[in-house]
C-alpha cells in the first residue's frame, strides 16, 4: 500500500512542478490540522484520501473528529480574550501581515489549487483576490467601530451610546467550492472584529487550507485565534452546532438539510447562525464591513450627565 502511494506522489511532483523524475526520494508533506497555534494530527487517527481531478492520490488528509473540534474550541476560547483586547490598529497590522505572507507563497498556492482542479488563470485570480481580501479587512480593523457605533438621542439626562463588541468564538463551515478564497473570506472579517474562529475547510480542496494555516502561523497571529480542521461536514455539523461554548455560526456549505439542523441546534444556546451559502466570494459582494458586523454584539451605555448650565445641549 505504502509503495503505491509513494509512486503516485512522485508522479504528482512531476505534474505539479514540472520536475523531471530523478532517483531522489521525494519529501512528501504531511498535511495536519491547525489547533491552538500547533499542527497536531487528528486525535482520531483517521484519514481520508484527497485525490486530484484524474483520481491520483494527492495526500492523506486528517479526518477530524468531534474531539479535535472540541480541542479547537477550548483553544479559541482561551485566545479570544487577549485577541479582543488587542488594539484595533494592531489587529490591522497582523491581518496585513497575513496578506504579505500569502503573497510570498503565491506560487505554492497557485500550484496547490491547480492540483485540485483549478485552471492556471482561475487559480492565480483566486490567490490574488485572497491577498487583496486580507488587505481589505486589515484596513477595516480600526474603522468598522466608528461606522457601526452611534450616539443615541434619549429623553433623560444621559449620554447614550452604542458600540459593537466581538461576540466570542465563531465556528464556520467553509465553502466547498473554493480552496483558499472561501476560507479567507470567512476568517478575515471574523478575526478583524476581534473574535476567534474554528473553520472546517473544504473537504475536496483541503490542500490550500492547511497551507493557509502555515501562513497564519507565521504572521504573528496568536495561537488559538484561528483554528483550521479538515474532514467531513456530514460528520461534524451536528457537533459543531451543539457545542455550547460557541457564540456564532457561519454556514457556507450547500446542504439545506444540514443548515436547518444547525439552526435548530444553535437555538439552544441562542447562537446566531449566518447563511453564507449563496455568497459569490469572487464578486464585489464577497467583501464588505457587514461581514465584520455579523459577528459583533451591540453594547449600549447610559452615562448620567449633569445638566449644569440648564442649556439645551444634550451632552
Amino acid at each position: 500500500m505504502a509503495k503505491t502511494v509513494t509512486k503516485k506522489n512522485v508522479k504528482v511532483l512531476e505534474n505539479g512542478n514540472g520536475v523531471a523524475k530523478t532517483n531522489r526520494l521525494s519529501v512528501l508533506k504531511t498535511y495536519k490540522i491547525y489547533i491552538g497555534g500547533k499542527f497536531p494530527r487528528t486525535e482520531s487517527g483517521r484519514y481520508y484520501e484527497l485525490k486530484d481531478s484524474s483520481g491520483n492520490l494527492l495526500a492523506n488528509m486528517c479526518l477530524s473528529s468531534r474531539k479535535d473540534y472540541r480541542n479547537a474550541v477550548v483553544a479559541a476560547r482561551g485566545a479570544f480574550g487577549p485577541w479582543a483586547d488587542r488594539a484595533a490598529f494592531n489587529r490591522g497590522q497582523i491581518l496585513y501581515r497575513i496578506g504579505e505572507m500569502l503573497e510570498g507563497r503565491r506560487a505554492q498556492f497557485v500550484d496547490e489549487l491547480m492540483q485540485v482542479g483549478s485552471s492556471k488563470l482561475s487559480a492565480e485570480q483566486e490567490v490574488d483576490l485572497s491577498v487583496d481580501r486580507l488587505i481589505y479587512y486589515a484596513g477595516w480593523c480600526d474603522k468598522y467601530t466608528q461606522i457601526f457605533s452611534s450616539v443615541n438621542p434619549v429623553a433623560s439626562a444621559h449620554f447614550n451610546f452604542s458600540v459593537p463588541e466581538p461576540t466570542g468564538v465563531v465556528a464556520a463551515i467553509a465553502s466547498e467550492s473554493t480552496g483558499v478564497l472561501g476560507l479567507v473570506s470567512v476568517i478575515a472579517p471574523v478575526i478583524a472584529g476581534g473574535n476567534s474562529i474554528i473553520a472546517l475547510a473544504s473537504e475536496t480542496k483541503a490542500l490550500c487550507a492547511v497551507s493557509f494555516a502555515e501562513v497564519i502561523n507565521s504572521s504573528d497571529v496568536p495561537g488559538g485565534v484561528v483554528n483550521i480542521i479538515t474532514g467531513k461536514e456530514d460528520e461534524l455539523y451536528k457537533h459543531m452546532s451543539t457545542h455550547m461554548d460557541v457564540n456564532s455560526f457561519i454556514y457556507a456549505g450547500s446542504n439545506a438539510e444540514h443548515f436547518k439542523t444547525i439552526q435548530v441546534n444553535a437555538a439552544d444556546t441562542v447562537k446566531r447562525v449566518l447563511d453564507y451559502s449563496k455568497v459569490e466570494w469572487t464578486s464585489e459582494k464577497g467583501q464588505s464591513p457587514y461581514y465584520i458586523s455579523d459577528h459583533q454584539e451591540t453594547k449600549t451605555t447610559w452615562h448620567p450627565i449633569e445638566n449644569i448650565g440648564g442649556s439645551s445641549s444634550k451632552y
Binding site: 472540541r70 474550541v73 451543539t242 461554548d245
Partner: peptide
C-alpha cells in the same frame, strides 16, 4: 446531554 458545555452556564 452529549453536548460540549460552556463555562457561561
Amino acid at each position: 446531554t452529549g453536548n460540549y458545555q460552556s463555562a457561561d452556564y
